[in-house]
Write a protein that binds this DNA or RNA. Sequence first.
DNA 1: CGCATGTTTGACTGTAGTCAAGATGTGTGG
DNA 2: CCACACATCTTGACTACAGTCAAACATGCG
Lengths: 224, 224
Amino acid sequence: MARATLQSSDLCRGLDESAIDQVLNIGKVIHFAAQELIFSQGQKADAVYLPCSGSQLVERSANTGQRQVLAFLRQGDYLGLNTSDQFLYSAHTLEPSHMLRFASHDFYDLASGLPVLRDNVGRISNQVLARALDHLFAIGQKRAHERLAFLLWQLWSRQAASGRSDKITLSMRRTDIGDYLGLTLETTSRAFSRLRSDAVIATQGRNLVQILDESALCALADVK
Amino acid sequence: MARATLQSSDLCRGLDESAIDQVLNIGKVIHFAAQELIFSQGQKADAVYLPCSGSQLVERSANTGQRQVLAFLRQGDYLGLNTSDQFLYSAHTLEPSHMLRFASHDFYDLASGLPVLRDNVGRISNQVLARALDHLFAIGQKRAHERLAFLLWQLWSRQAASGRSDKITLSMRRTDIGDYLGLTLETTSRAFSRLRSDAVIATQGRNLVQILDESALCALADVK
DNA sequence: CGCATGTTTGACTGTAGTCAAGATGTGTGG
DNA sequence: CCACACATCTTGACTACAGTCAAACATGCG
């Protein structure tokens, strides 16, 4: 599983088999239960993680109890790559997950000897920033149901990269979505209802969303 | 001016004089008038800039006319460092400004031969991301006057790095502040009034803010 | 089946947005 | 140097969107 994750990752794009072996060599697959803490905000940033299976959540919380969810992760994403010496956020799993873990010093030592890997890390940093800017725009400028459309489009387009389907399975709660979008869970729920009644999406159970009108979703999300 | 900017920059931290000369060699100081465009969103990202004087604004706008201000810059900041092949945002000056400009290929060629410079670029990327996450948290979770406190604290603590003073000169309009904080200019203005009546700040003219109660400002901004 | 957890909906409140008028700066030309 | 005109900012009145509190409704697990 670890090898498959690496081979299909942007991180190892352009690396030959032997280089991938070197990367694999310093990593270790760890299993986490659902809702298990991976690391905490403020903790020494001593590791880099690659999700191999399951889904994870990245969040920042304040003394005041407020919480901002920063990202939802899955296979193909990265965790802990762009940190100073302390983690600026916490991460925990949503579903049971396998994560490929690298000790930071091992990882950066290896990267400094593999220019391709090093460049990939830089490229990924840029992607992470680009995503943060999209997120910022959505939260700062859009209305509730548009923000939800933005998230659904994000989730959908990222999973579409693997297998084409008009369905999304949500592994997070409404509260998590709300905290990602800067909304309460009630407003989030109403946003779901609105997209449903506007026939943009349909839902089966709590966690399965079907996209009925892709172009409407894009328009609301203001993408493409 | 360019040399002084570089010497005091995080970008050139740890570089010796000859290395700084090399950097200086590939750069060129350009002067911009107030409110002049530096580059546009979508344009090929062919340059990196360092503000030497004046102040600048980074923004993203949508087809719908909505605008999110992403950052206010001044000496000590960076512009265009963390981009893919196209700029993901536009930048223009607020005041007349001198900017040190590097062609991207020159800059990255040089960086690949100077490990210290390369590492500094990575560190700066992380700072940029860290700031974006702070921004995200503020917009997603705080109320209007708290968001303004957050911005004032940011501006104040960054200028405090140079010379200690309890005053901040704002080079941007209320609209710009509103678009940075995800508020309208009217709400922004009311937030100023509120901080004023709560004796957190005082204002002299439109653009000069005096910080009366630093601890209240920090508490509202939820920092430190 | 029953309970716990999570979600939806309803009624009401509060914060920020909109529209509009008035005040305060800022720059220019007489 | 003053007067005027334009920009920008502030304030007010009203509206709309999202937040709060609360109850009813699902869903899933033991």
